[in-house]
Design a protein around this nucleic acid. Sequence first.
DNA 1: CGTGAAATTGAGCCTTGTCAAGACGAGTGG
DNA 2: CCACTCGTCTTGACAAGGCTCAATTTCACG
Lengths: 234, 234
Amino acid sequence: MKRTQIDAAWKGTANCEDCGIRDLVLFADLAEPDFNLIHLPIDEIAFEPGATIYSSGGDGATLYTIRSGLVKLVQYLPDGTQRIVRLLRHGATAGLEATLGQPYEHTAIALHPTQVCRIPRQVVERLSRETPRLHSQLMQRWHAALRQADDWLTELSTGKAPQRLARLMLQLADGEGHVTLFSREDVGSMLGITTEHASRTVAEFKRNGIITELSANRYRCDLAQLSCVASAEC
Amino acid sequence: MKRTQIDAAWKGTANCEDCGIRDLVLFADLAEPDFNLIHLPIDEIAFEPGATIYSSGGDGATLYTIRSGLVKLVQYLPDGTQRIVRLLRHGATAGLEATLGQPYEHTAIALHPTQVCRIPRQVVERLSRETPRLHSQLMQRWHAALRQADDWLTELSTGKAPQRLARLMLQLADGEGHVTLFSREDVGSMLGITTEHASRTVAEFKRNGIITELSANRYRCDLAQLSCVASAEC
DNA sequence: CGTGAAATTGAGCCTTGTCAAGACGAGTGG
DNA sequence: CCACTCGTCTTGACAAGGCTCAATTTCACG
């Protein structure tokens, strides 16, 4: 991690009306005239893995829509230990608390190469005031975040380490059962276990043939076996 | 737990405009004319400890404001294990997902004697449509719930059992350092440990003089020592 | 080819889970 | 009023799981 400056790059100004993933994002329900209320530029930005999108405690001036990639939300305890409380992907909204005039509650860091749209708080505030069509989406975003937080707790912080890891990998698996994992430290921080234990558990999965390493940190998973371990039947 | 029917009691129909805790609740920002939009009765109901307020998966017809008492939100995993994901008290809103037309995501059960106001979903929907003054409160409620969920994860599911218990008791302590605890099973389900281990950890606190039992499940706490244990300095 | 960060592995210890037995307390029925 | 019952809490002993510390190994990058 020596790239500190060059891992965030401006990719242009978005034209939200023509957004390729518009039906997924916060502005999904906006009608044509609503877009005229957007009076500030919405920038598209790319982040390399490891790059910080925003920091805990920072003034919440903008919120973000994740266009692609994967982002971790990290929460720090007073004593310095940290915990990853959520993962954001494709279509998710980060930094919702900005719309309430609050500082950011987490630090958001890209795990995979990630593209985001940066939405100034004032844009949401104005749309919120002048069109009812944003409300429902905002509520749904809050709801989705809360739901994910609750599931995260029950799935990834309950049961023994192999169970938790299996559940995490099931969440991350794509249609073909492929998973791109990240650093063992991050895995541990999601599951509430140490880095070493995360490493051991991944190694155990490999030995048992539950997962096969295709390339560095890319795995092909046996989804049936993963489900089995996840439910503690194995 | 033999009372199954008689542990929920209707206490009358609320007059929200004159609500004693109005500045704490969902309707805090409503103006006088807004109250005329409430066209369905809002009932006040009392629940005894152990009584179920609503059940996971149930049709979300109403949401609830907690007037007094303490409520646990329980989430079940497919395999039957359960986890308490949040505690609601004085002023909190339960069942917010009802406003989105979703079924309840948790089972809500009273831990202490609890009084609630039962608000039909349609009331919130109508207010939501016709007055902007509810939006900000709804957002703030979502935000508070999410914040609590994140803190719950980092504080009560991270670190060793004594640390977690200490953090829980600090959350529960009133101004005088008094805490009314609940069943060991519930304590375990909040901290992600077994009932037996919860019992042992409480007993250890008693032996060390960190807490003193005043009466059944009522304790006086040494807050300084609790903080010390919570931060793992002890 | 050297360097440093991350990942892996091992050994021993501490923490927690498991299973089982006993203690306690509230409510029941004689 | 007392014995009985049932559920919860407590405690013990042991096993298993996870943590800590330290030594290697691996790999990306200069």
